[in-house]
Write a protein that binds this DNA or RNA. Structure first.
Lengths: 198, 198
DNA sequence: TTGTAATCTAATAAT
DNA sequence: ATTATTAGATTACT
């Protein structure tokens, strides 16, 4: 791979992304969004720099119609051939800032979301194996806050990235807390109905 | 490295950790906390399983004296030789749950914290180079929410882990928001004093 | 649909 | 200063 192109077609990370490309067209050879183009080293594309980066918190909290027409989500203004199609849209945190519900229906937005999700740039979901989960759970029972050394050890033993271990423990703690809250709630409800019967 | 020991002495990840070991004693050869011992495969240490895992949210919010004497932070009950010294204490999120302030002074706790930080298991702080920061900043200017592919690309180009990139962008966004809030505040203050002068 | 991996923010700890 | 971790909410994939 000589080029430093960053797009799905050349990195070929997940089948999802390839599917996405087929969906948009069969232009995988034209895909050319690269770090160089971000850095502006790719001089012939400088014109695209007019697009402003996605900074939700710099926007006014209640957007006017003019603002709405200016937001990144007001598509389709960017084509796939445009390198900034990837840069700007890639990691938009969903519809939280969608003020243009008046312009497109919920189903339209949903199908749009479906089509677009392939380039949103989320890491493909890791599917842990049975044995990996077992080991993680066993360690979790003893220590729900493994430090860097245990995380690295697990990562090595389970052939996973340390970051996946970290995230797994974060989600696992959240799950435990959730279930704890739920059981607390059930206990409270139980006590309540028992008190009523007396 | 034949053993799967997880402690700083054998993994030798950072000079900090080695310092910590020297601080506690010169027992680096005895260090033997391993995934096996967590999993209970190390039968001869099973007795240590009496120690309960650290689950702050399962504890009552206001602890009694009995509870306090039972918490992990009520040291020194664990010696370095005890494998669970590492497991249980490793990633305690600091003093947030310290209810035993009545038992040890602030300075005592501080020096304790100093001594103990080496095994808390935090990843050693990454020192980004000038050029790495430059590239990250340049990309950030265009896209503050890089997706997985750009993050991987950057990781490869800058010889960093992808999750360091992720964390860097999270912290960078927080910084931008902070500075934005500050400038908003200054502007408001300015407007206020100008209005007073009129 | 559900469960859970991945992402984000905000606050905070630690260096 | 700024990197690393956490909780908690949310998104989105299998």
């Amino acid at each position: 791979m000589a080029s430093t192109s960053v797009c799905a077609a050349t990195t070929g990370k997940s089948p999802n992304m390839l599917k996405g490309i087929r969906l948009v067209g069969n232009k995988s050879s034209q895909c050319s969004f690269s770090i160089e183009s971000i850095l502006g080293l790719d001089k012939k594309r400088d014109c695209t720099l007019a697009l402003k980066p996605y900074r939700p918190w710099l926007e006014p909290s209640i957007s006017t119609e003019e603002d709405a027409s200016n937001t990144c989500l007001h598509i389709p203004i960017l084509s796939y051939e445009n390198p900034f199609f990837h840069a700007v849209n890639q990691a938009m945190p969903g519809e939280r800032i969608v003020q243009n519900e008046k312009y497109c229906s919920a189903t339209e937005r949903l199908s749009y979301k479906r089509e677009m999700s392939w380039y949103r740039g989320r890491r493909p979901r890791t599917a842990f194996s049975r044995s990996q989960i077992e080991m993680l759970e066993t360690v979790f029972r003893v220590n729900s806050y493994p430090g860097i050394d245990i995380r690295e050890e697990l990562a090595h033993k389970l052939d996973l990235d340390e970051d996946r271990i970290q995230i797994w423990f974060q989600n696992r703690r959240a799950k435990l807390k959730r279930s704890h809250r739920e059981s607390q709630f059930l206990m409270a409800k139980n006590t309540f109905s028992t008190n009523l019967q007396e």
